[in-house]
Design a binder for these strands. Sequence first.
DNA 1: ATAGAAGTTCAAGTGAGCTTGAGATCAAGG
DNA 2: CCTTGATCTCAAGCTCACTTGAACTTCTAT
Lengths: 149, 149
Amino acid sequence: MEALLTIGETARRSGVAASALRFYEERGLITAQRAGSGHRRFPRAVLRRLAFIVFAQRIGLSLEEIGAELAKLPSERVPTGRDWSRLSGKWAGRIDQRIAELQRLKVGLTSCIGCGCLSLEHCQLVNAGDRAGRIGPGPLLWVGGRRKR
Amino acid sequence: MEALLTIGETARRSGVAASALRFYEERGLITAQRAGSGHRRFPRAVLRRLAFIVFAQRIGLSLEEIGAELAKLPSERVPTGRDWSRLSGKWAGRIDQRIAELQRLKVGLTSCIGCGCLSLEHCQLVNAGDRAGRIGPGPLLWVGGRRKR
DNA sequence: ATAGAAGTTCAAGTGAGCTTGAGATCAAGG
DNA sequence: CCTTGATCTCAAGCTCACTTGAACTTCTAT
């Protein structure tokens, strides 16, 4: 088992396209050594980092947020299980929030949409809170009557 | 209470920006009558339609999917509560799927990331299924070893 | 009558997250 | 040595869901 992986091997083993790996490297989410030729050589540890990235994306974090989290890992040693779980600990709350929202949406779907209270002015089922970053563009979310501008 | 709303009123009451309303009209998600001047006049029923759209977006559907759903509403009469709930019924399943995935992710986060099984090749915690449309671009999701190309 | 708010169209821009293409170089097997 | 496949860089393109700007027109209130 080689200690260093080429970009192709890394792509195969992680399921992340080579182009995405270059993109992530450019964004500072992962790092690669270089062979004399200029070709990337990824340490095996990058695989776990990639797993974490894909995981975090499924949870709904942006690459920027993920990068900020990854930056908290110790850079001079290979991160331990404890390092990783410390990172991921705070996300459980985020998942719970999102689950709670989905459950509210489900209630709204089966009751509220049919009943007529979805006249928008009073219904609080759909709220922001999550994805607060999108308050600028995108449909304004009705947050209890308060809205931008 | 006026029977028809201007685009500005519609935007205020729905929380959806006027530019988004024009965009949705262009995409066929909503329709507007026109005043002699060319100004849009939205029937009040558009508010419920907008509520549904925002709802559906929070659940994770694309505008295209939402449009397909809305197309199933009767076009010649104002949809009833039953019409709406028939539409939304099938989404409950989708919400449940997404909740289940989030719960799996949460388990993975607290156990799997720390333990070492996240070496990608064996871990099935992150799967596709949801968002199948994204299988083309974007990071390839590991679906039990099977991947595109 | 006139200012200013609100509306119109159309084209182009935005941001996230990559992918694709061009043109060149590198690595491995026969 | 030569071919084939992997990689490299850099610039440009793509999808989604809108927003923004320019250049006008219309409505409303004084």
